[in-house]
Amino acid sequence: MSWDQLWPLVLDGLWDTLYMTIPSTILSYLIGMPLGLLLVVTAKSGIRPLPKLNAVLGVIINFLRSIPFIILLAMLFPVTRAVMGRAIGTQAVIFPLVISAFPYVARMVEGSILEVDRGVIEAAQSLGSTDLQLILKVLIPEALPSLLNGAAIVTVTILGYTAMASAAGGGGLGAIAITKGLNLRKLDVMYVAAIALVILVQIITISGNHITKKMDHRKR
């Protein structure tokens, strides 16, 4: 296949990939971030221990995380159809992507927040912070570098999942590599799509690292 034919194909795939990845990442954080915070806050050693709620949350998150994405995708067909209007296609696949990614986000956020020094939290408490002030003005800002680093990892993971979206009729670079490359024995298409994915992942990782470093004031 000539570059004139390949180029629009790759651009098209890139657009579809971003179209799935970016909204999925944002929506996963909208759900996963509060859940991650809730996990930390309600833990036994947290600032508002609620052991039962914490245990229930933990079970749900672990359950969702243990189902492989490709299987979750199929299991969710009826729900996806109800929520998104259709079960397959680039747009529809955002729903299972979010369902699969938000528990992962919750665990990532939990890990980042847990890194905040216990003493710093106590200092904030000693100054008369409300729980909300503690979360918004101390926990999140203090964990920010780690949270951003986690966000880059989550984005790359969701990007990886989008490649499997071809199984549900989704587009994107992954789908092009499989349906228009591998299945049609057009190896050049497969390689070009794969290389485009690699470059995309590199860009996300490098800029993620860069922003993380810039935001981290714990190093001189």
Binding site: G119, V120, S126, L127, K137, L144
Partner: peptide, 27 residues
């Protein structure tokens, strides 16, 4: 009732001025 600590427990992501400002912000 103010409190100071052995390990200082400052907000590492805030500047000195913003550390000192924190109690005023929350009030």
């Amino acid at each position: 009732i103010g409190m100071i600590f052995q390990q200082f427990n400052l907000f590492m992501q805030r500047t000195i001025a913003h550390n000192i400002r924190y109690p005023l912000e929350i009030a």
